[in-house]
Design a binder for these strands. Structure first.
Lengths: 152, 152
DNA sequence: CCAACCTGGATGACGCGTCAACCATTCCCG
DNA sequence: CGGGAATGGTTGACGCGTCATCCAGGTTGG
């Protein structure tokens, strides 16, 4: 016997699905329009900005961003083509690769960050109460816990 | 002066972003593994199942799903290749097109639906309180309102 | 009537994301 | 040692999603 969703669950689920489709799209458009960056670009650049010598090992980027390696590889290739980052060999480990922030990349994220965080404020936090913000965090933590549990 | 995110906002935001990346991915994998369908396939098939004569005008599907027309067109092309749907001309309007559910499509979603809703229960609703479910809906409605206002 | 406009839809290019396969290097253990 | 397993990374194919562009068929106003 299938457990279907009740009225309240259905409404919340539908609304959540819609938000989850439209919010990233809106933030992406804003970033793209104002700074020529995508959300994925932004995430990578943030990690590199916070790193010593503006460089991070690829596998560490994967860990920090929770990305799989092939995803990072593709992303870095595209960003390299736009000269936001470069790759460098690691001496001491012939397999490894550093992803290195370029000056252009640095400039791009410094320009983008304030506009992006402002958009996040406008679209999300300005309309939510402290309580709602707290609950959002709890919900996400719960679901993430479930996801981790499921993967064993 | 940029308004950065405070501690609580930052935690909620990060957790939300992570959930939003991993939850659809997990649901997609489940659906793909158990039924050979994607979430996008599922959404389209649901609409068609609820429709008289198992067919809906393309532009009505766009309205119902909040998709843009090119997205639907691409999706229908892929689904048609797998014989989940077909297209039919509309008599009375030479531009229009019906998207029509096939028997294979009908069988696919009937098999997929119970497993999918079960996964949604397991990953989301089983761990949330009624209050959290309600708040999730409120949050999504707030943000969707903001998004609509911005496009105003 | 017909030209301008609007609507419904398709297409191509590109970025994002996953999966599977592959390759080189390094590690580890018998 | 030497050979198999693990690690770090790349690549190709494919589905998803957006944007810009195009097109045919309708609609409307002068």
């Amino acid at each position: 016997m299938t457990r279907w969703l009740d009225k309240a669950e259905q409404h919340s689920w539908r609304a959540y699905l819609l938000m989850q489709a439209r919010l990233p799209a809106a933030l992406n458009r804003q970033l793209q329009r104002d700074s020529g960056l995508s959300l994925a670009d932004f995430d990578v650049l943030v990690q590199l900005t916070d790193a010593p010598a503006r460089r991070v090992r690829a596998f560490e980027l994967c860990r920090a961003l929770q990305w799989e390696k092939s995803r990072l590889s593709h992303q870095v290739r595209r960003m390299q083509a736009r000269e936001l980052v470069t790759r460098e060999d690691v001496d001491g480990d012939g397999r490894g690769a550093f992803v290195v922030l370029t000056d252009a990349g640095s400039a791009a994220i410094e320009a983008a960050a304030p506009l992006h965080v402002e958009a996040v404020h406008r679209l999300v936090f300005d309309t939510l109460t402290r309580q709602q913000v707290a609950t959002l965090g709890e919900i996400a933590d719960e679901v993430l816990g479930r996801l981790d549990a499921e993967r064993g």
